[in-house]
Computed example of a mutant assay.
Amino acid sequence: MNPIIREAKPEDRPFIEEIAKLTWDGEDYLAGVFDGWLGDNFYVMELDGKVIGTAKLTLLPGKVGWLEGLRVHPDYRGRGYGRLLHSFMLQLGKKLAQKGRIEALEFATYFLNRESISLAERTGFSVKAKFFVFSARTEDFEPEEPEKVEPSMSDLTLGLIPVGWRFVRRSGEALEWIKRNAEVYDINGFRFLVSKKGTTFTPLDVGLATLKAMLPAMAWVSRERGREEFDVMLPSGVKPLLLGLRRLGLYLWDETEEPNVLVFRKRLL
């Protein structure tokens, strides 16, 4: 029987939870965002009455269709189902572009996700930006409570701003989107942002001294959200600071001297 791709429904939750438990050692965020994604370009692949895959398109500022949540149940990988989901999302993107809602598709992936990278390159995507994602343990810092602040354009110091694993280009529209989807904190004059439910932080001032000041505040926010570990997303320009960043208590998931997060883009118009 051929699989079908359809919009996700509330009764799909048990299948989604199963896929999440079997992805990233059970650390997948999919189950946590399920309710919020329903009815918003969130699709599942069904085979013989069982949901075996997922895919999501999120509208971002700048007429970008952000691709995320592409998953295939481990028991069904290697059979081309990921390619089918990817192809379906490309067609959805083209339809939205024809309606004037988006102009390009983008997504981010880890540098060792060779299948996603190969699929992207074969379908006309190219790398537009690179970042480092580091991890840290809250126990390595003395948590310090920061002040939550209202962001302004002057806070958006990067041209491409990570908000968790989504990336938005600096603009007035992006600022308003960030206000709705993220929180900005200040600690001793240094600011950072984090998505409202996540623990992947973006420093808005990048340097060893400023990061040293911000890390205890990031640890505080992480503990408030029930997490003992957190991530920090930094632009590729920090490469010369890798040794110093490690000394601050940050570590990479896999040892590398190159950026480990790739942001892909495919223009549709």
Rank of each mutant, 00 (worst) to 15 (best):
residue 151 P to L: 02
residue 190 F to L: 12
residue 142 E to G: 14
residue 50 K to G: 10
residue 254 D to W: 11
residue 228 E to N: 14
residue 11 E to R: 11
residue 201 F to Q: 01
residue 266 K to V: 06
residue 82 G to S: 01
residue 184 V to N: 01
residue 211 L to C: 02
residue 81 Y to N: 07
residue 235 P to N: 04
residue 80 G to C: 09
residue 62 G to D: 05
residue 192 F to T: 08
residue 268 L to V: 09
residue 39 G to L: 00
residue 41 N to A: 12
residue 86 H to V: 12
residue 83 R to A: 15
residue 150 E to R: 10
residue 82 G to R: 00
residue 70 L to F: 14
residue 139 E to T: 15
residue 89 M to E: 12
residue 226 G to V: 03
residue 105 L to S: 11
residue 256 T to H: 02
residue 63 K to A: 13
residue 152 S to V: 14
residue 38 L to S: 09
residue 101 R to E: 15
residue 210 T to E: 06
residue 197 K to H: 12
residue 5 I to Q: 08
residue 56 K to M: 11
residue 151 P to Y: 08
residue 236 S to Y: 07
residue 18 E to H: 08
residue 223 R to F: 07
residue 53 G to N: 00
residue 54 T to V: 02
residue 238 V to M: 02
residue 269 L to T: 13
residue 15 F to A: 11
residue 263 V to C: 06
residue 62 G to H: 10
residue 211 L to V: 05
residue 87 S to D: 15
residue 233 M to N: 13
residue 229 E to L: 10
residue 269 L to M: 12
residue 178 I to E: 01
residue 267 R to D: 15
residue 243 L to F: 15
residue 74 P to Q: 00
residue 100 G to M: 05
residue 22 L to Q: 11
residue 42 F to H: 05
residue 129 A to T: 10
residue 97 A to V: 00
residue 153 M to T: 11
residue 128 K to Y: 15
residue 36 G to E: 07
residue 99 K to S: 15
residue 55 A to C: 12
